[in-house]
Every structure is written in structure tokens, then in C-alpha cells.
Amino acid sequence: MISPLSSLSSRESPPVLRVEDLRKSYGEIKAVTGISFEIAPGENYGLLGPNGAGKTTAIQMIAGVLAADGGRVTVCGQELTTGTTTVKSHIGWVPQEIALYDRLSARENLAFFGRMQGLSGKPLATRVSEVLELTGLVDRAGDKTIKFSGGMRRRLNIGIGLLHQPDLLILDEPTVGVDIQSRTRILDQVAEMTSLGMAVLYTTHYIEEVERLCQRVGIIDHGVLIAEGTRAELVKTVGERDRVTIAADGQINAGVGQITALDGVHEAGATTDGIQMLVDDAAHLLPRIIESLTRSGVTVTGVEVEEPNLEAVFLHLTGRALRD
């Protein structure tokens, strides 16, 4: 998924978005405490964090709809604040909460927000048709959105952000509350946008989405950007070990003793219904591990291997699971 060539070339051009030391408190709550990052043209950047991490707060400041307490947002080389207007045309912000006119049709919603983006006449009509096509809403274009399903509303919500072909598309948890099909469709759309050269800032608390879509990832927790890099770079910080969980009965402690002695097995320990360990290369070592266990009187009933992923990175960095 990550094309080294494109990321190389994109690193060389000036960033579409530069965020410097962005801060925001709500009274006592420090929602965002000094985050900084950059997004290159055509790059898909994932902002990953649990509920309440400060993703929406950060994104609203970046989109210029929430006044920051401090810091600086630069879009395509121009500073963006809540008071600026023209720079905002470079951005397509898709809010986490669906924002559509209930009593207007999909087409009317698109046309209205297209006008707000400064489009009109034929270009507007063309873009409205294209976006209806892209979001799969052509058949329902004339229906009032109040009659739409959640997934259709989500898609239109995203479509509005795409209308004016922004340099930077900002998506705030665009797949929350939609079924698998809609979700796949949305992810495909986003991937397509990136392939067309649009930079994307994508927030989510779904690891799979980030792993599938994003070239670079920032992990945010309690308003702080605690790690940043490509997936490979981040995973390296927790080591390249696989987590192996074995469901077993019998001489568990003896088994643990046996496998600890094996080369490439680390931190083996008994759990309530089996054994857990970190393994340098599970695919290679697993037969020997099971053999050792069987020999020491352990009955293996199940094996689960987790390759290192961003979840593990988050766990490693915060001591908490991303979703709990």
C-alpha cells in the first residue's frame, strides 16, 4: 500500500498542512496540548486516538471553525484562523457529526455547499453530478436527506467536503455508525481521492482503517501527539515480535519453563487459561513451541498469533488498549 516513490516525492514538496504547537482548553479540560505535524501533498495522514483524545478539537482548529488558544495552522503556505475566509477553499472539512439540511435533497445540499465554496453555474452542476456519482447517490439525488439511511447520510456528508476538489480533505471519523458495505465504500472513496493527489487528514479510532489507508500516522492521547511515523516506523518502536497466545491445559508451569529456554521466545508466562509470550518469528518457531509444550505435558487447544500492529504500539505507549 505504501509506495516509497510517491512518499519520497511528496516529502520534497512544501506541505499542504503545517500545524505548529496547537493548543486548546475547555475550562479545566486540556483538550489539545501543543500538537505539531505536517502533511505533504497527496499524502494520507491518519490521526489515531481513543475517544476524548482531542482529535475533533484539533481538527476543528485546523479547519478554522474553532478558535485556538495558541499555535499556528498553515494551509498551502497561508496562515488559517477562524477569521480567514479565502484560505478555507483549500480545505474540505467533513465534520464528525453529520451536517446536512434535512429538508433539502442530496442534490440541493451539494449545490448549496458548492455555492458556499464559491462554485456556480456549469462547473457547480458538473461537480454536483460527479460527487453524486462518486457517493453512489445518483438514484436518490432528488430525495430529501431526512429520508436517507445513516450510511447514505454519511456518504453525502463526505461528498460535500469533496465538492470543490480541495487540496486537503479532513475527515473526522467518517465511518462511525455505518454498515460494512458503506464503510468499505467510504474507504475506497478516500483511497481514490488520495490516488488523485488530494492530501487527506483522517481521524479514527479504528486501527484497520489507518493501517489500510494512511501512509503516516500520528497517535494522539490526552491531547498530546505521542508518536508519529509510518506504520513500519511505529511498529519498530515496540519491536518486531509477534504476540502468541496459547490456550492450554495440563502442566502449564512446566511448559512455560520449557519454552522460555527456546531461542526467540520472550516474556513467556501463564495466563488464566493458557500461556502468553512474545516471539521473534512466530511462523518459524511455532512448531517447536508446540512440540516443547506437548513434551512437558501440556495439552494445546488453541493458538493465536498477533503480528505487531498499531494497537500494540498504542498499548506500549500508554499502557491502555485503544478501545476499552
Partner: peptide, 8 residues
């Protein structure tokens, strides 16, 4: 808010 996110 959405309107203000556009150049309006």
C-alpha cells in the same frame, strides 16, 4: 459551523 468552514 459547516458554512463557516467554507470561504464564507
Amino acid at each position: 459551523t459547516r458554512i463557516v468552514s467554507t470561504p464564507t
